[in-house]
Design a protein around this nucleic acid. Sequence first.
DNA 1: AACAGCCACAACCGCCTTAGT
DNA 2: GACTAAGGCGGTTGTGGCTGT
Length: 190
Amino acid sequence: MAPRKDGPTKETMNRGAWTQEEDQKLAQCIQIHGAKKWKTVANNSGLNRCGKSCRLRWLNYLRPNIKRGNISDEEEDLIIRLHKLLGNRWSLIAGRLPGRTDNEIKNYWNSHLCKKASHIEEKPETSTAQETIAQDNVVGDNAMLENKDSISGSLDSDVIFNVNEFLDFPTEEPYVFDWVNKFLEIETNN
DNA sequence: AACAGCCACAACCGCCTTAGT
DNA sequence: GACTAAGGCGGTTGTGGCTGT
C-alpha cells in the first residue's frame, strides 16, 4: 500500500447520524458529480464524510424512488422465496424489489423474517417441492452466477432453468411478481 | 415515574472485486 | 502483470424509541 495522502482521517471524520443539512449538501454534490465518483463527491461536498458513507446514505435514503417502510405481504413473501434461492445476497434480492435497498431488506430479514423463516423450516410438512428446488440451487448459486451469461442448469437438480430469467428480469412492479409466479410454475409443471 | 429489556433501523467495518495506471 | 485506489457487499454494532414491570 502506498502512503496515504493527507486528508480527513478516521479520527477527524464526521460520523454518526446524518443531518438534513448534510443530506442537502450530498444531494447537491451528486447532482454535479454524479452518483458514482464517491471520493470526488465526498471531497467536494464539504461534508467531513468518507466516500463509502456518502454512497450508503445516497443509496439507502436519498436516491429517488426509494420506498420506505410498509413492506407488503407480497414483498415479504418474495423476500423469503428469494432468500431461499439466493441466500444472503441482499443486493441481488433488493434488485428484484423496486425501490427497496439491500440494507433495508437485510434489516427486515434479520429483525422480522429470520425467525419467521426458521419457524417455517421447523415444519417440514409445510415445505414444498419448490423450496427443495430452491435449496438445491442455493448450493450451486455461485457457479450459476458466474455463468449467468449463458443458459445453464443446476448440476444436481432435475430442474433446468435459465439463470438470466432469474436475475435479469425488469424490476418494474408488475414484472416482479410474474418472476415469482414463473418460478412457481417450474414446480407446478414437475 | 423510573428503570430494564427488547426491537428496529441507521451507520460503520472489513473484506473482496474491479478499474485504472 | 503488479500495484493501488475506489467501489460494492454482507456482517455487525450502536442507539433511540417502545413496552412491560
